[in-house]
Nucleic acid binder design. Structure first.
Lengths: 251, 251
DNA sequence: TAGATTGTTAATCGATTAACAATC
DNA sequence: TAGATTGTTAATCGATTAACAATC
């Protein structure tokens, strides 16, 4: 990766590089912790309180917050509401981002019903699938629409975020269509590595990878009690790669 | 975190520290890439081929593989099947790990139906919920069972991995029960920070955090086209934290 | 042998952490 | 003022990368 031209040594500075990636990934965690504290009626919290609520140590939390500015008061702590707003603003979730979900299989259904999406910051504007059997189905207060409508919807609703919940097979094709339509951020649940042009951000959620990481550590936990089982039945699980989650887009 | 006593400088060595975390997290990606190559009938692949398939650069891939041993042939590359087996063995997915899913709401349903779980390495042995309306429901070839049976199931099936797909509220309680029952690895989908004793591994999958990370970068992409929308409708999305995914365990 | 590619080294980069001066 | 807590510094740690000697 090429870096910006002249960098002096030392930690990244905000104006040059923005906020470090590791910090960006924790800001939503802090936001949630602050919301929980706020809901508990707590108006002020120290970095120690906040760190506990977020599951990190306080040095890291203070360092992270220092990239945003100086929003605390020495000797006192942080005003919960104020800091919450500042973090929400920094992340960019003080307004709503329009989201489309492509691939309305099991997982797509679950996400469509997921009230957490509707939480401040995101708004599902369309559920899309290419399977005629699914088009028209009602899910909550939405209806599954034809994937062919993608371009119109992205344009009409200024969609910048797409969620892919198709099987692995059609995922790259769907991704290409999303990008061509103008979507510049993608959250991919399909078990496949997608390639996107520069300027498009992509993140991946992969259940079986998470489980395999756990399995690695599990295997290393001493011996006896935690050993995996040899299947008693003739294995009905193939040696093939992860098959489909989600619906029939393009399949 | 305390470290092992006497460490000389230099990269971590395998016998002292096992494989670096960043490498462990990529091994499942390599495994999937190898499976895809194998399915395409490719018998040998260079680090460059493999790296492309896995979405990393070849230097990183070779460095990662070097922690496992020397499984390649200079001038030739890697035998796809052989390397695949070695990685599967290192991760610990040459045998099946028994998994329970707790909380059979939308997401729990989706995971229960998710054929990817059945893929080599994991076997769902129970779907659990505390909601009497859900207990007894059939999902695929399984039936939802009472969460009260947890301890018996963990013991009988030597379950070491638990997946939590309950709402945030009951998640810590469920987690405590899992740990008390002997589960030592947990994959948490509930939007809450869980605390577990030392020796228990926990990983978290959080949809709204992933979206917020995308939103941050989206916000920073120049101006115009990608600006979020101000909702036209009176916002039906509260300012509260992420509400529930999943079923009614303990709620 | 000549060409190709691995496995490893060493430099660089980015993230974490403890400690503490600044300051409420 | 005395106690508390932030914001920042500097040291350490871990991860990435380019380069290349080893070797097929």
């Amino acid at each position: 990766m090429t870096r910006a031209s002249s960098r002096r040594p030392g930690p990244p500075t905000r104006t040059e590089r923005g906020i470090p990636e590791a910090t960006v990934a924790r800001l939503p965690v802090y936001l949630r912790a602050l919301t929980a504290l706020s809901d508990s009626g707590i108006a002020t919290a120290s970095s120690e309180d906040l760190a506990t609520a977020a599951g990190v140590n306080s040095a890291k939390l203070r360092k992270d917050l220092s990239y945003l500015g100086s929003y605390g008061t020495r000797g006192v702590g942080y005003d919960v509401e104020y800091l919450r707003y500042q973090i929400a603003r920094e992340i960019g979730v003080t307004q709503d981002w329009a989201v489309v979900i492509v691939g309305i299989g099991n997982l797509g259904h679950a996400l469509a019903n997921y009230s957490g999406f509707g939480t401040r910051g995101f708004r599902i504007v369309a559920l899309l699938d290419a399977d005629p059997n699914l088009i028209g189905e009602r899910i909550g207060d939405m209806e599954v629409r034809d994937f062919a409508e993608l371009e119109d919807i992205v344009k009409a609703d200024r969609v910048s975020i797409g969620v892919i919940t198709t099987p692995a097979g059609p995922a790259q094709g769907v991704c290409d269509r999303l990008v061509a339509a103008g979507v510049t951020s993608i959250l991919n649940f399909a078990p496949v590595v997608l390639s996107v042009p520069t300027g498009v951000d992509i993140r991946k959620v992969d259940l079986s990878i998470e489980l395999q990481i756990l399995a690695y550590h599990e295997q290393r936990k001493s011996g006896e009690a935690a050993l995996p089982q040899v299947p008693e039945l003739p294995a009905m699980n193939g040696l093939t790669d992860l098959p489909s989650v989600g619906g029939g887009v393009g399949a």
